[in-house]
Write a protein that binds this DNA or RNA. Structure first.
Length: 759
DNA sequence: GTAGGGTTAG
């Protein structure tokens, strides 16, 4: 200071006074700061650490960080205060990374942080979830002996909490001399978020012995902590405990616990809470109403939803959103859409949740085209899709193989930096796989910075859908080497892949490994896979034995797997047994009748074929209308079996005739076993040619450039005749053709199908 | 100069 004093003497009192005044006075004007700056530059006083610090603080106060930084860099000897003014201002302006950068410059100059900078730095680390940096700075503060300071401890505790490091947070907490209810509440909430019920209880009793009374915020923090992390049982338990201890839950408590009540299927408790809410007069709170609607929706009580909605007088976005979700959750997607339209008409303010809920409702209930249309419409309406919207709409793209829409959603996700989100990533992997682009699934997977089990499972199920068993197994091996544990879904993909390509030994090995090494009890879907696996290997009797010995009651999937295996192996006896079971389990499903009839037909048992047809007629049952989708030039086209009203029907028929002639020339005859109609042979052939997958493929041939791949989805299992025709077309027309039926992909190329004719 | 609680979308 002594060296500087003469300099300060040269500075006019007005400027010195301005710089030394408190920040609240600086707001007078930025021009005063620039004036001061100019003067200081002239006098050379700017180089003084103390003066420059004041100047930096002053510029920072006006968010002129560039000027502040410039000064910091131009002075030869900045002090801690020079740096910390900038750090403080940057942190306040939420420019966290920059703040950390300034600190590292300060530290590398050998300047020692003090108890004023440290809390700022810990706040920065908390906001950035920069645990490693935070811990390093913690070490520095210990080495400097500053970790006993109250402010340092408080911010350090907060930093560890925000990074989810409960162990470290607890250690800091234990060293604190004074603990108030605010800090304790934060600790309680942190433990609840981790699902640590025991720790929550322990902290509560510690508080009691220290004479710190938990308040309503403490309790609500516990409830919301458990609820947010999916610890429903614990949330409910603590809610009851709170009530038991005489704390009256307020509107925050009620809206925090209700989602958990709904998820833990405790309608009884939900009704009790409803009664309490009425008694306490909390029904005017919008969050309480939304949460209550959500709870009734999760419990399947549509009437409860409607009643609450009608009773609530104000039209409130959150309440409406909860209604939309509740209705679609219970399959009433049309009603939900109706409501959504009504909200639009009434010029209600629809937010991103409103749009996303409606889109998700559509995609989950077979309204895929509507979902894509809504996604477009929301952007036109100026509502920006977010990290939830994208994974809600992507399944719709996958369902109907709308690759163009899926790709543009991918591009959108890249633009708004969503690729590090596991939900977005998994949904993209699934979408690309279902659109026949398994290579893109792999690319998305490889580029994800962090992956959870859902990502791995999506990739495995994608390859499995494509019949690529080797890939599924090698991904599984890689998965095992991570810290993640495979679950029952991982094994479903593995077993399904093995069964598709006939890897019997591997299938058995994984089936055993699932229980022995991972303690996962086989579910119905695993048994279905095993039945298919054995069936494909021709071991039908073993498959039947397995069904009879399995500890679960076999469902339609298991018997369906057996029936399909019987079709592959031409086994009528077991087919009849399986079919009888299926007729009992799914009396409404015509597919089972058709399958059995195909088996009879293949054996030339025409009387039995007739009797099945009569049975179906007697039950008033019709074959499910076959339906296929194909995307041509950004538009998805739907083709129905036997649809003669199609605008391009003449061209389609002409092309089909051409293909038919070519096929006969090369010795292919139509397989009439799949016709299932009591008509003349020629007519039967025409019926076969009217199958939707053939129509879609031919439609694709006509409307896309030569040589480009075609992609078709079918709502039923692909028929055997279509399979051979499409194989032929792939060679004859020189096209790669992907057909996705109900459970897998057929990749036709050069006259061969990837399934090896087993499906 | 640090520090606590809510609903509805995957």
């Amino acid at each position: 200071m002594t060296k500087v004093l003469p300099l300060i003497e040269k500075i006019p009192q007005t400027i010195l006074g301005f710089l030394e005044s408190s920040p609240s006075c600086w707001s007078s004007s930025l021009s005063k700061t620039t004036q001061a700056h100019a003067h200081l530059l002239k006098s050379g006083a700017q180089n003084d650490g103390y003066i420059s610090a004041k100047l930096i603080a002053s510029y920072s106060n006006y968010s002129c960080f560039d000027d502040a930084n410039l000064i910091l860099q131009s002075i030869p000897d900045p002090n801690v205060y020079s740096f910390s003014s900038l750090i403080y201002a940057l942190t306040k302006a939420k420019l966290y990374s920059q703040s950390l950068g300034v600190f590292s410059r300060m530290f590398s100059r050998g300047l020692i942080p003090d108890t004023h900078v440290l809390p700022n730095l810990f706040k920065v680390c908390a906001e950035l979830s920069a645990f490693r940096a935070g811990r390093q700075i913690h070490c520095v503060s210990c080495a400097l002996g500053l970790d006993g300071d109250g402010f340092v401890q408080g911010s350090l505790f907060h930093m560890y909490m925000r990074c989810g490091k409960m162990g470290d947070a607890r250690k800091v907490f234990d060293r604190m001399r004074e603990r108030d209810v605010v800090t304790c509440s934060a600790l309680l909430c942190g433990y609840a978020r981790k699902g640590c019920l025991e720790e929550v209880v322990r902290v509560l009793s510690e508080m009691e012995s220290e004479g710190i009374e938990p308040n309503v915020v403490s309790w609500n923090g516990i409830l919301s902590g458990f609820n947010r992390s999916g610890y429903h049982k614990e949330a409910v338990e603590m809610f009851q405990k709170m009530h038991h201890l005489g704390f009256l839950p307020d509107e925050v408590a009620v809206s925090s616990v209700l989602p958990s009540v709904g998820d833990s299927e405790r309608l009884d408790l939900g009704r009790q809470v409803h009664g309490y809410v009425v008694k306490q007069g909390l029904l005017k709170d919008k969050c309480v109403i939304s949460a209550m609607i959500d709870m009734y929706g999760k419990s399947g009580r549509v009437y409860g939803i409607i009643k609450l909605f009608e009773e609530f007088e104000v039209m409130e976005t959150g309440v409406c959103n909860a209604c939309i979700t509740g209705l679609s959750r219970n399959g009433l997607v049309d009603k939900a859409l109706e409501m959504f339209e009504l909200f639009k008409e009434q010029k209600m303010e629809l937010n991103v949740v409103s749009w996303t809920s409606t889109i998700a409702g559509c995609a989950q209930n077979g309204k895929d085209i509507e979902a894509l249309e809504l996604f477009r419409e929301m952007q036109v309406a100026g509502v920006k899709p977010n990290r939830v919207t994208i994974p809600s709409m992507l399944p719709a793209c996958g369902n109907i193989a709308a690759l163009v829409h899926g790709r543009s959603a991918h591009a959108f996700a890249v633009r708004i930096h969503l690729l590090d989100d596991v939900h977005v990533g998994s949904a993209l992997i699934d979408m690309y796989a279902k659109c026949g682009r398994i290579n893109m699934s792999q690319v998305v997977f490889d580029m994800m910075p962090t992956k959870n089990l859902v990502c791995w499972n999506s990739l495995m199920s994608g390859y499995s859908m494509h019949g690529k068993a080797k890939e599924v197994m090698s991904i599984f091996e890689s998965l095992v080497r991570t810290r993640l544990k495979p679950d029952f879904i991982s094994f479903t993909s593995l077993l399904s892949a093995c069964s598709q390509v006939g890897l019997t030994d591997e299938g058995w090995r994984y089936f055993g490994m699932m229980t022995d090494e991972y303690g996962i009890k086989p579910r119905l879907e695993h048994y279905s896979c095993m039945v298919s696996l054995l069936g494909r290997a021709g071991k039908l009797q073993e498959a039947y034995d397995m069904i009879q010995e399995m500890p679960l009651e076999p469902d339609s999937c298991v018997w369906g797997a057996l029936l399909n295996s019987c079709r592959l192996q031409n086994n009528v006896e077991l087919a009849e047994i399986a079919a009888e079971k299926l007729f009992g389990l799914e009396p409404e499903n015509p597919g089972n009748y058709v399958l059995l009839s195909n088996i009879y037909a293949a054996k030339g048992m025409w009387e039995e074929v007739d009797s099945i047809r009569n049975k179906m007629e007697g039950l008033g049952m019709k074959k499910n209308p076959g339906c296929s989708w194909i995307q041509v030039k950004n538009k998805v086209y739907t083709l129905l079996a036997g649809d003669k009203s199609h605008p391009q029907i003449d061209q389609i028929t002409e092309k089909m005739d051409e293909i038919s002639k070519e096929m006969r020339k090369s010795g292919h005859l139509p397989n009439l076993d799949f016709a299932l109609q009591d008509v003349e042979e020629q007519e039967q052939e025409q019926i076969l040619w009217g199958h939707s997958e053939k129509l879609a493929v031919v439609f694709g041939l006509l409307n896309t450039p030569e040589g480009t791949p075609l992609q078709v989805i079918k709502n039923l299992r692909i028929c055997g005749d279509c399979h051979s025709v499409i194989k032929f077309i792939s060679g004859y027309a020189g096209r790669e053709i992907f057909v996705r039926d109900t459970n897998r992909f057929h990749h036709f190329k050069d006259g061969v199908c990837s399934c090896g004719d087993f499906w």
